[in-house]
Amino acid sequence: MKISDITIKSFRTTADRFDTGYARPMPDTPMMQTLLTIHTDEGVEGHYFGGGSHGDAEGLNVVDQQAILWRIKDLLVGQDPMDREMIWKWMWVANVQENVASVIDNALWDLAGNFANLPVYKLMGGARDKVKAYASTYPNIGKPQVYADHALQCKKEGYIAYKIHPHYFWNPETGTPTPGRPSNIKADIETIHLVREAVGPDYVLMYDPWGTYMSLEEAIQVGRELEKL
């Protein structure tokens, strides 16, 4: 079996998104989606949906599509689609950006599952039939108390853990976006204390500041508060 073609279908759709600049939901936001398909000479196909910003939430942009159809396709046509590790190494050596390489890799896994008539998790070992789920926020969902209320709501809905993305590219005092990543140490520390108080001492909490702190001292200051909680 050999790879015979790679195609990408683009289409318009809508999805519920969140405006991190103004802490507000954006229901039915128009966006472009993509479906990538790897074809073979035996008729077996592998698909991947999305691949742009936030993973599956948005499609591949035009530049990424061109990289796949004009460069990666030439590397892969005629190759065995089961040689996933070799193909990944080719893309890595060629400095293919990771989201694009991941789209190809996932489509190859889907193709292997279709060929074997098995779900991919079975091909990878199938040790579990369920996984634990946790709730994760967008950044800037609101002022500190909003995080606490949201965490408690998620706990009541059955999530066993909660991850905070705090305030960045945003001013929590004014509720407006800011350029760069100014640190919001005061609001972030208030947030983590209020969330812990809301969900109780034993609930699992996580924290993802995404490199927002501008100095080692700031990172340590927040880290010490996380350590207490």
Rank of each mutant, 00 (worst) to 15 (best):
M86L: 13
I192Q: 08
W90D: 11
N117D: 15
C154V: 01
Y134K: 09
W88V: 05
I192C: 09
F115A: 15
D188K: 00
Y138M: 14
S102A: 14
R84W: 10
L75H: 09
N117R: 14
Y134T: 10
K132P: 03
M124T: 06
Q79G: 00
L108Y: 12
I104P: 00
H193I: 15
M91F: 10
A161R: 04
Y138A: 13
Q145I: 07
P139H: 02
T174K: 14
Y147K: 03
L76H: 01
D105G: 11
P179D: 12
A101P: 00
A127S: 12
Q145W: 02
L118C: 10
L75W: 15
A198K: 13
K132D: 15
A127L: 11
E98K: 11
H165E: 12
P166M: 07
K73T: 09
I185R: 05
K132A: 14
M86H: 10
V195Y: 11
W88I: 06
A127P: 00
P119S: 01
F115H: 12
W92R: 08
V77I: 15
A112M: 13
W170G: 01
R196C: 06
G78V: 08
L108G: 05
K186F: 10
M91Q: 15
E98G: 04
L75Y: 15
S136E: 07
N184L: 03
A161P: 02
P182S: 02
V146I: 09
A151F: 03
R128K: 15
Q153S: 11
S136Y: 06
L108V: 10
G113F: 06
D129I: 05
T176Q: 15
I192P: 07
Y168V: 03
V103K: 09
P179F: 09
L123H: 06
T178M: 14
A151H: 01
P177A: 04
K156L: 13
K73G: 05
M91P: 05
M124V: 07
W88L: 08
N171S: 09
N171Y: 09
E173P: 00
F169Q: 13
A148W: 01
T174M: 08
K73L: 08
A112W: 09
N140H: 07
N117V: 04
V131L: 14
K186V: 13
V195F: 11
M91N: 08
D110W: 08
M82K: 03
K143E: 07
G180M: 12
V120N: 02
E85F: 12
A151Y: 02
A94P: 00
T176R: 13
E173Y: 09
F115R: 14
F115V: 03
R181D: 03
N114L: 04
A148R: 03
K132I: 12
M86W: 06
G78S: 08
